[in-house]
Amino acid sequence: MRQRRLLVQVGVAAVLIGLLALLVNNLAVNLIRTGLGLGFGWLGRPAGFALAETALPYAPSDSYLWALTIGWLNSLKVIAAGLVLATVLGVAAGAARSSNNRLLRSLAGGYVALIRQVPLLLQLLFWYFVAFLGLPSVPIGGLIRLSNQGIQLLGLNLSVEFCAVLVGLTVFTGASIAEIVRGGINAVPRGQWEAFRSLGLGEGLGLRRIVLPQALPAILPALTSQYLNLAKNSTLAIAVGYADLYAVSDTTITQTGRAIEGFLLLLLSFLLLNLLISGGMAAFNRAVLGRLNRSR
């Protein structure tokens, strides 16, 4: 029996290695044929393309590496803002679905049902071409100014592309988070609601202080995977011309022909991003569980 197990494993390993060797061999043949080779020396060469939105100073004469870093920062910017806004929207919509107000409840239900059955890319295009590029130029109270050139918010200047991606990601992910929050709230025993009501606590206060904290352990793991989805989905920004990591990688690969190296860099960046998000959430999860256990 043990021998058979060993034999099967060796067999599987041999097939996998064989397959890998075949692919690598084909790759080598193709690379020699196209005369490219592998290497990362090209990262230091000037990129030569302009970027519309840069968090740090950037000029086309800067290196590919710097261009990719700028793209990474742009991605980070939209992902971080999206995480916060989607959470707020999702929790609000999820809580609204168990509200006593029938109109509010059905509106939240309609929002979730509609948004989840329409592709995100289509929604992004809608926000960009219809909602934001169709904006009339209107100042609202001096501090906020909307126009199809961009949005000025208390001295903050946001590009239309950024706003479209941010709103699209927020609305789409918010609908999924709403479902998770609703599930978490439903998992809290009804007796808890009755208990805080009989203590004379208001609905809003009871939801915030009694129900949501108990729903958190059920919500957090699913929330983490939604956050990871949001990060991955932010790459669709290329469709509206926002210079995120993927868009910059795409341009870089098209210019240099370095598909494999480009893919490896993209893979590494996303592994790092995922690690950041899931690590942060794991720490938060531990803190929540610890507090909950102490309070029991």
């Binding site: 290329i238 993927y246 893919f263 996303f270 592994l271």
Partner: peptide
């Protein structure tokens, strides 16, 4: 599961 779909499709 770590990579975005658009990257998988492009590559």
């Amino acid at each position: 599961r770590a990579v975005p779909l658009i990257a998988v499709l492009f590559f």
